[in-house]
């Protein structure tokens, strides 16, 4: 599974295992069987490719929420999954970080599945699955699903809804 599907969880604090960014990224590579030196070199290279070379030796605890989320995404991405599942990655971020992470996610070659409660996050996605009480309520292009969703919200407020987009 982890080779095929990368999962980024809601809380970056509970996902990062190692104290520094470089170690966190390198961990995914040792998981794939690389030796330690290779992992470290590759991790540095990977961070540089993604424009995060300056974060390499930073303690994860000292990063901003947006940077933490980015590191969590990169730590999963480094294992080169085919599909990336993001569980509410933008929920605790400010507007600037939300935009940056969204741009990053949308620029990836992987197929993306993102869970969110906020439909402004779904701009640029191809397909939205509307889940309600564990069931698929609607599946279609964003415009249609969002319109139906909004109409539904207007009709009855206070019901817990979840959306997933592909």
């Amino acid at each position: 599974m982890p080779r095929l599907v990368g999962v980024v969880f809601q809380n970056p604090d509970l996902q990062a295992i190692f104290p520094t960014v470089e170690e966190e990224i390198a961990f995914g590579l040792t998981q794939l069987g690389r030796d330690r030196r290779e992992s470290r070199d590759e991790a540095l290279e990977f961070l540089a490719i993604h424009g995060c070379a300056q974060l390499a030796s930073m303690p994860i605890a000292e990063l901003s929420e947006g940077q933490k989320q980015l590191v969590c995404i990169l730590s999963v991405l480094v294992m080169e999954p085919r599909l990336l599942v993001l569980d509410e990655p933008l929920t605790s971020l400010d507007l600037l970080a939300t935009r940056k992470i969204r741009e990053k996610v949308l620029s990836l070659p992987q197929k993306i599945v993102m869970v969110s409660h906020d439909f402004s996050h779904f701009e640029g996605f191809d397909r939205i699955l509307w889940l309600e009480e564990g069931r698929l309520r609607m599946d279609g292009p964003p415009y249609e699903v969002l319109r139906a969703f909004e109409a539904d919200i207007d009709r009855r407020s206070g019901v817990k809804l979840e959306l997933a987009a592909l």
Partner: peptide, 14 residues
């Protein structure tokens, strides 16, 4: 869960 998602304590090399 997060550890498992990245291959668990044994890694994926095997």
């Amino acid at each position: 869960d997060a550890l498992q998602a990245r291959g668990g304590s044994e890694g994926l090399s095997g």
